[in-house]
Design a binder for these strands. Structure first.
Lengths: 151, 151
DNA sequence: CTCATATCTCTAGTGACTTGAGAGTTTAGC
DNA sequence: GCTAAACTCTCAAGTCACTAGAGATATGAG
């Protein structure tokens, strides 16, 4: 008997996102009030918590869908779920490595720029000229690694 | 006198991406051959290299646009560029922290799941039940941090 | 001149949502 | 019971940074 907003609050999800999950078949279609509003069971809360938590861990919706399917059929071997998690772990480690390199480089850039004009700004120099770069970005444009906007 | 494919190869960019950058006004509109093909100068190569390198460091296209504008006016103070980079650095650090938490949890999940069926798989339990989670994800759903798909 | 390769434009698709408009529903207080 | 605020509904479109594909045209080496 939970309204969508309650579900949203309890899981830190936006209402629209929950409807989106329903739309793409990740969440089951809930019951409705006479007036047409969604009303959820505690099971739905669990499922959404699972989804959100998995998302926070970096799983894609496809991976989550896969895991939910496995979870819905408890006779499946644990092995498969574990493989998904292991694959995920490797990716996380990879991503951490890359970010550490970026951090090194950005720190260096930021600390070296003390006042002055853009004309002789270290940040721009480093960005303009790859050779000033300490870290390697050899495999640029490779599949599987998306560049994510931060600023 | 560089064709778009050459530019693409030299910077590790896809041809379509270069045209996209032109379309959104990040790259200048290049000259054309009689037959209508784009021909670039070395300046364009530099600019593209700057863009790609910045992207690899995680700057958004908007931030890059901002920096390019500053760079085009060398009398501006360096301070602004530096602030962009500093902001970027903070984000990278934040992201690393989060990923480290994920790594901890995933490692724990993976090592604790040894065979058996999904019914008693730790991975699913941990993902379903936030309380089993060692790390904190209190500020879930917050703006400014996108969850990125890995699997 | 031929022909493989490169390039052209244009449209649509990706993932994981987010935003907004405009209308209807529920609920708390009186 | 009534009203007003808060919540919810559907549907469409927008976001970011590309990526993919179709079908037509251009270029350059031999």
């Amino acid at each position: 008997m939970l309204a969508i907003g309650t579900l949203a609050k309890k899981t830190g999800t936006k209402v629209q996102t929950i409807r989106y999950y329903e739309q793409i078949g990740l969440m089951n279609t809930p019951g409705r009030t006479a007036g047409g509003q969604r009303r959820y069971e505690v099971d739905d809360l669990d499922r959404l918590a699972f989804i959100r938590h998995s998302r926070q861990l970096g799983f894609s919706l496809d991976a989550i869908r896969e895991m939910l399917e496995l979870a819905d059929n408890p006779q499946y071997p644990c092995e498969e779920v574990n493989q998904i998690a292991a694959r995920q772990l490797a990716e996380v480690e990879n991503r951490i490595d890359r970010l550490m390199s970026l951090k090194t480089e950005l720190s260096r850039m930021v600390t070296q720029c003390q006042g002055g004009h853009v004309a002789d700004c270290r940040v721009l120099k480093v960005l303009r000229d790859h050779s000033e770069c300490l870290t390697e970005h050899g495999q640029s444009g490779q599949a599987g690694f998306n560049i994510h906007p931060l600023v």
